[in-house]
Write a protein that binds this DNA or RNA. Structure first.
Lengths: 172, 172
DNA sequence: GCCCTTATTTTGAGTTATTCACGATAAGTG
DNA sequence: CACTTATCGTGAATAACTCAAAATAAGGGC
């Protein structure tokens, strides 16, 4: 099942090109990277590749379901190899680092909303927000997300978001 | 507790201005709107308000926790009045419309990830993806999100994302 | 009510992360 | 090997904001 990148591309009716292989390899090694980072990594092997080509590749591979695109609030799009498993993500609200969360307890009930306003629901996506080990060690920086991208702007009121409680809050 | 917009602003140490009141009112009437839409609504009352002012206001009110900012993949930021309750969102993958989901069953266990990679977890956020009633009625359009913004580009392979299964899939 | 301090707003430019177009190039097919 | 057409590169365009600094206007004090 886990065939070579080449055959995965062929199976998806995509041509096998150096760029695509390099991008796939880069994501394999550095999961959850954004397009810019991937471009820099790929250029180590393929110096001439353009930023747009990387975007094209990411777009095509995402469409072909060889990659999954994740877009946490406050960051640019990140990519990961699509594994068939069920996993979610934890995003560091300080530095934006993303890690996989294998699964959650009580999974099935989680995905049963009580009131769907007439929507036909297809998928459920869970994102955890927290602080990664490195940032916990360094302490004291400013949050990048749940909604407020570190107001460094002196003109606008900056409300401290510091209190990192240990208990998990349900996000409204 | 549900005091007037004026006193909510004052309590947050923010000055009461026409722009802020208008934005609050607009969001009250049109929840889950983006900055651009809100700007257009507000201009019905306050023709001269600038786009940047609307952004300022949204930023300040979000910081003050009078608003909540939500950023579903594939859309620009949306805003809603912050109600103290626990609710999540359903996003229509065709038109981007957002609706509230009051709560999910088995809430507490959902928020207990099995493996946090050293993160200190703070909050959990659940987003459901599906098709809204209107789009279900109209049928056949192309998906705007989980990751693929309707590739209308003829150059790039467009894989059909159509199959709207009725069962809920866990999103990897 | 008027003055003063300073939070907001406006104006205008700058950024970031992408997408669009299209000629040049190179996979894969016969 | 020739040929068709998917892919790449170049360059421009866009969306959605953010940043900066001068102009304006809340709200407190007199």
């Amino acid at each position: 099942m886990s065939s070579s990148p080449e055959s995965q591309l062929r199976d998806a009716a995509l041509r096998v090109t150096a760029g695509r292989l390099a991008v796939l390899a880069a994501i394999e090694e550095h999961p959850h990277s954004d397009a810019d980072t991937l471009c820099r990594i790929v250029r180590a092997q393929l110096p001439g590749i353009s930023v747009q080509s990387v975007h094209n590749v990411l777009h095509d591979l995402t469409n072909a379901e060889l990659l999954r695109r994740i877009e946490p609030a406050g960051s640019s799009a990140r990519y990961e190899r699509r594994l068939g498993d069920n996993h979610h993500h934890v995003v560091c609200s300080v530095c934006g680092t993303i890690a996989d969360v294998d699964c959650v307890h009580g999974e099935a009930p989680c995905l049963t909303p009580s009131n769907t306003s007439g929507f036909v629901i297809d998928t459920a996506e869970i994102t955890f927000w927290g602080v990664c080990a490195d940032c916990t060690a360094n302490a004291g920086a400013s949050a990048i997300s749940p909604s407020l991208a570190a107001s460094t702007n002196p003109t606008h009121s900056a409300v401290a978001t510091a209190n990192a409680s240990t208990s998990i809050h349900h996000v409204h």
